[in-house]
């Protein structure tokens, strides 16, 4: 109870309560994430259960009864009669899962390499950071496509659909670790010269223990900020790849896949098939990004 009231009074929570943008963003993020997680219970239909699909329901306009079945769909249906609202909920699951896992992967890889580079210095540092620099000169999406292409080439054909999601995660993760590594290396360079690290060395602590127990906890706040902003970028990257057709397979459509499917009908008048997934993607990415922006300001003592 006391801990709770202390948390309420802390600068962090004060800063949150006084930022309407942060409150609204968090609200939107929570709403979207929860409805994605609870999709099987929230969604009115299961768009991936062939038995529940009725081709007669195809191209139903939003909020209007279908001409044949008289069924009403809030956000309309696509060409195969799938409920757009339900596909968005299920699609968001894929998008969020890929986003989170890819960022987590990038974070672990980047933080580890950044810590080692910063602490070890010398040739280790030069090698790691040069690789990072070279990778930075390519657009992230290009790197992701390259990795995706290579992975597709080496996975057996019958595994491709199953593996597609994981390949996507690794592709996005590998294209994103550099900024974690850079920030962590920079922070490590500062921290390792602080006297508490010298005190630990003096005791005879091994480098691994010093990095893990002393330095890591002190370089995590910028990592948290980057992770949040990266999440928005990863979701967009996933959508982009899927839109280009190299991402999530049609059997497991993400928001990007839905937008790709929808754009085919844009000019024939079925605007709802593309519009609603696109709005969802926009809301998700924007609110996560705004949350990250606020987090950066709140964790930066200089702006307080």
């Amino acid at each position: 109870m006391e801990a709770l009231s202390r948390a309420w009074r802390s600068d962090f929570s004060w800063s949150f309560r006084h930022s309407p943008v942060a409150i609204i963003s968090l609200g939107v993020v929570l709403l979207l994430v929860l409805s994605a997680l609870l999709a099987p219970w929230v969604a009115p239909h299961n768009p991936f259960d062939p038995a529940s699909l009725n081709l007669m329901n195809g191209f139903t306009r939003p909020m209007e009864p279908n001409a044949f079945t008289q069924e009403i769909f809030w956000l309309g249906t696509d060409d195969q009669g799938r409920d757009v609202f339900s596909t968005i909920l299920y699609g968001m699951r894929i998008s969020l899962f890929v986003g989170f896992t890819a960022v987590l992967f990038a974070l672990i890889l980047g933080v580890t390499l950044g810590l080692i580079a910063g602490y070890a210095g010398g040739w280790t540092e030069t090698t790691i950071m040069r690789v990072a620099d070279v990778q930075l000169t390519f657009p992230a999406i290009l790197v992701a496509m390259l990795i995706f292409g290579i992975a597709k080439g080496i996975t057996p054909v019958d595994m491709r659909d199953e593996m597609a999601i994981w390949v996507l995660i690794i592709a996005i993760g590998l294209s994103d670790w550099v900024q974690f590594a850079r920030v962590v290396r920079g922070a490590t360079l500062v921290e390792k010269n602080k006297e508490y690290v010298q005190a630990a060395r003096l005791i005879g602590r091994k480098p691994g223990a010093i990095m893990l127990r002393h330095i890591l906890p002190n370089v995590m706040s910028p990592v948290l900020v980057i992770a949040t902003i990266s999440l928005a970028l990863a979701i967009i990257a996933e959508a982009t790849l899927s839109f280009l057709g190299v991402g999530a397979p049609p059997t497991q459509p993400s928001l990007g896949t839905l937008i790709r499917i929808g754009q085919g009908y844009l000019f024939s008048g079925e605007w709802w098939i593309i519009l609603f997934p696109a709005i969802t993607l926009l809301a998700l990415a924007l609110s996560v990004n705004l949350l990250g922006d606020w987090l950066r300001d709140a964790l930066n003592p200089k702006l307080r």
């Binding site: 602080k194 006297e195 508490y196 010298q198 005190a199 003096l202 002393h214 906890p217 002190n218």
Partner: peptide, 11 residues
Amino acid sequence: MIFQDPYASLN
């Protein structure tokens, strides 16, 4: 060892 800067010498 005891260091100069009491702010930097404690984690």
